[in-house]
Simulated assay, not measured.
Amino acid sequence: MAAFRDIEEVSQGLLSLLGANRAEAQQRRLLGRHEQVVERLLETQDGAEKQLREILTMEKEVAQSLLNSKEQVHQGVMALQQLEAALQEAGEEDTRLKASLLQLTRELEELKEIEVDLERQEKEVDEDTTVTIPSAVYVAQLYHQVSKIEWDYECEPGMIKGRGMFECHSVPRLC
């Protein structure tokens, strides 16, 4: 704005010189001043153009940065959606596994009850067989004492095998 005021001032000075007697000296002086003003105007114009180019360059960089940011946001949204879907699937799988665990826990409790019942029955059977086994052992010991036969108690059920000095005997088990 100051440059335009200076141009206006120079123009008015030139007009006043033309009307005055000392026109030639004033005209040279005003022309010198006019040249300075024009040079200043050109320098200002060059500076403005340089600043405009810098602003355009910065605008391009900002626009590119904005596009890159939008792309990153888009990718982030897609990744978030995938994570949410995976989280939902994991939640559903967790629910299925919890239901399965609950069912298996119930079955385990039932098996524990069955095991306790079987142990109780086994104790009852052991108590019942404990009463009869001593009599069978007594009979086997008596046979051994009398016949000197070594009895093999690890044979098939219902049989007791024995070995004497010369031959092998099979005797039906008494119990």
Rank of each mutant, 00 (worst) to 15 (best):
V38P: 00
E122D: 15
E110R: 02
T130G: 15
Q51A: 13
E154L: 12
Q141C: 05
C175K: 12
D152Y: 04
V10A: 14
E71A: 10
E113S: 11
D94N: 12
I149G: 04
E35D: 09
R40I: 01
K50D: 14
P134V: 06
E8N: 11
V38N: 00
L111H: 04
L101M: 05
A3K: 09
E61I: 06
M78N: 10
I114A: 15
K70A: 05
Q12W: 04
N68T: 06
S69V: 03
R120E: 10
Q72S: 08
R40T: 08
V146T: 10
M1W: 12
L111G: 02
E156W: 06
V37C: 00
D152E: 08
L42P: 07
Q88H: 13
K70Y: 05
L87W: 10
R28T: 11
Q36W: 01
Y138Q: 13
L97C: 00
D94G: 13
L67V: 07
Q103R: 04
K123Q: 15
M1T: 12
E89L: 11
N68R: 06
R29P: 01
Q64N: 07
G76H: 01
Q81W: 02
T129D: 12
L15C: 02
V171K: 00
Q36S: 05
S100K: 13
S100C: 05
I7T: 09
A20H: 03
A23G: 14
E8W: 06
L52I: 07
E122Q: 15
S135A: 13
V37K: 00
E92N: 09
C155G: 15
L83F: 13
Y143R: 07
Q103F: 01
L14W: 00
E115M: 12
E127Y: 04
E93I: 02
L17A: 15
H74A: 14
E110M: 02
G32W: 03
A85R: 09
G91K: 07
D46R: 10
G162I: 00
I160N: 02
E59S: 06
L18R: 07
H144P: 01
A90I: 04
E49I: 07
A63R: 06
A79I: 06
L52E: 11
L142C: 08
Q82V: 07
Q36T: 05
L174E: 07
E127I: 05
L18K: 05
V131M: 02
L18H: 04
G164W: 00
R40G: 15
K161Y: 09
A63P: 01
S170W: 12
R29C: 06
L118C: 10
M1V: 13
K60D: 15
